[in-house]
Design a protein around this nucleic acid. Structure first.
Lengths: 353, 353
DNA sequence: CTGAAAGCGCTTACAG
DNA sequence: CTGAAAGCGCTTACAG
């Protein structure tokens, strides 16, 4: 640790510190005990260290390990135990705040369980979903979290054959364990809010047709309107990408095809921002001329020039919950899918100024 | 691979497939060659396979490896070679689109080099920067990319002592290799744009005082104004967080302390969105009453109700460039810091309707 | 052209 | 209470 002031030595020492972190064997040799004893002591739970070694030995080992900053080599451990303590996470795009936030929840919970995560983008491209999954398997992950599932579960059936436990977050697929927002309920909440405000001519910017999020939010919304005796016609329901550009494009299309609806439900806050832009281009004031409601309550929603009414979804908790479910699965415990409750957050974009 | 329709067998097979991916030894035994021969063949570059084994043997080995889907166990490889092919990435927050995009660039380039990445948030908390770095070292990463550097390089000096190569992206620190946007130039471009539009009373939402991004963007801006003979007074330069809430808060403060400036430069698009909100609350129209210019050209900027003038920074390329620099460093090659050029993107928020 | 050995750093029954 | 051995799956000189 001390620096010797002879240039030749210094380089050697730095090199040594760099190349060789302290190993179990180094500890064992310094203490004149067997490497297996050190291993046992360092792994025993506090209450069963008695059986690992004598109290004195335990103390000596732990102190030296502390002093030298011993960190087990995870590759050696993984090789030996056949557990990598690694979890793979697949998302459409990490630069989508929704997925980034979910991932933060996943990684946070993973750290609490002593697990590390690998994330990767699949861009919702099936070929990438497959190749990135294989890459994760190549890395010997102990489990996978999919945030990019297609509602058609063919791919997941293939993954099942690989024997690696996995869970879904963000988007659900029937027959597979998942932690998602109760998106049908979310859609219903949006509908109820607009119904209360008296909107009968409404449109939906519905998201991607392969994602349960878009499907369920749209379905819950339309069903609630149907209950109220109002049919949302199919030309008022437009597919879209889950971003501002997609929301703007879909809204443009909507506004081009006839008189504007009195309210628009965009199944994603970013799409909703695109909707706000398109409305403005057409000289319509969001919240006064046309009500707009988004989904997720991203941090931006409250700060927009026209604060956005939205359905809050528990993004972070979805990530945490998904990882927790995966851990249970990895332990061989039975698991159940969870639907987390959404919440309406009313702001100016529907209530007006 | 085939499914036997006897329930007992099925479970066994799935279990087998799950627990034991194919190993070098399995290949060797099936082919009646030594495991070292298989290893040599599978590692040789196409042109030197002649020296690894006979043409016939090479062919047999490669075919079987393909057929069985052999994937080397990375933990065994890492243990043996003392290279993990792992890179650690530290960012303030992955749910900040700027950092997520930079990370996407890093991971993309990493994959091309056969490297995998671990990302983690530090929330700009020094204690976390340290603990997360230690966690990365524990994972035996071959290198680290810091996207969260403080301009004060004390922490990085400590990291240098660890002997692990690292590079900086996003934020630079004198004396350490980095790939960043030329933020001083970016600030200057913002100033020139506003000067051309005739703005003499301007304010800056300046970001965090410990980040080179905020410092350089602000510095370049103020210097350019000084060149034009205009002093930007210090009460017109406000610290802020790099998000919408921070931008709104700082702008509120600005608008409270007296008559509004005729233009505001926010050193981050999200902060700029907060600025737009605050202006609207005060009955001021962005682009007409007060010009607003942001930084980064995030995908949202163009889609906002008032499209945002901004300085485009090459976020993705910064990530790619940073990883490339790290690879050079890991090879022991000399490296040089790079400044990537920013670009002005003029939109309605400064030009008006 | 190919085999055999050693060893990376760890864990885990098994002895004693 | 502690030691010794075996082995996880790979790579790398070294022989022959």
């Amino acid at each position: 640790m001390s620096i010797t002031h002879m240039s030749g030595r210094i380089i050697t020492e730095v090199d040594t510190e760099k190349r060789s972190p302290v190993t179990l064997r180094m500890l064992a040799e310094q203490l004149n005990v067997h490497v297996s004893t050190v291993s046992r002591v360092l792994h025993a739970a506090p209450d069963e260290q008695l059986r690992a070694a004598s109290e004195a030995t335990v103390k000596r080992i732990k102190e030296l390990a502390d002093e030298l900053g011993y960190r087990p080599n995870p590759h050696a451990t993984s090789l030996r135990t056949r557990r990598s303590n690694l979890v793979g996470v697949l998302v459409p795009r990490l630069s989508d705040l929704v997925l980034a936030t979910i991932y933060e929840g996943i990684d946070e919970a993973a750290a609490e369980h002593g697990l590390s995560t690998f994330v990767t983008n699949t861009l919702d491209v099936p070929e990438s979903q497959r190749s990135r999954t294989e890459m994760m398997l190549g890395r010997r992950v102990d489990g996978i979290v999919f945030g990019d599932s297609y509602i058609d579960g063919t791919f997941l059936d293939w993954v099942t054959g690989k024997g690696v436990p996995f869970v879904l977050v963000n988007r659900r697929v029937p027959g597979h364990p998942s932690v998602t927002c109760d998106d049908r309920l979310g859609g219903r909440l949006a509908a109820e809010h607009l119904l209360e405000l008296g909107h009968t001519d409404v449109a939906v910017i519905a998201g991607e047709p392969y994602a349960s999020t878009g499907i369920d939010r749209t379905g819950g919304f339309i069903d609630r309107y149907a209950q109220a005796g109002i049919t949302v016609r199919s030309n008022r329901v437009l597919q879209s990408h889950f971003d501002a550009h997609g929301g703007r494009a879909a809204t443009e299309q909507l506004l081009t095809q006839g008189p504007p609806p009195s309210a628009i439900f965009a199944v994603n806050d970013f799409a909703a921002i695109g909707t706000l832009g398109a409305l403005r281009d057409h000289g319509l004031r969001a919240g006064n001329d046309v009500a707009v409601i988004g989904y997720n309550d991203t941090p931006l929603a409250a700060e927009l020039p026209v604060p956005l009414t939205t359905i809050r979804s528990p993004m972070h908790d979805m990530g945490r919950g998904g990882l927790t479910l995966l851990v249970q699965l990895m332990r061989g415990e039975p698991v159940e899918s969870r639907l987390l409750p959404p919440q309406l957050i009313a702001r100016t974009s529907t209530t007006g100024v």
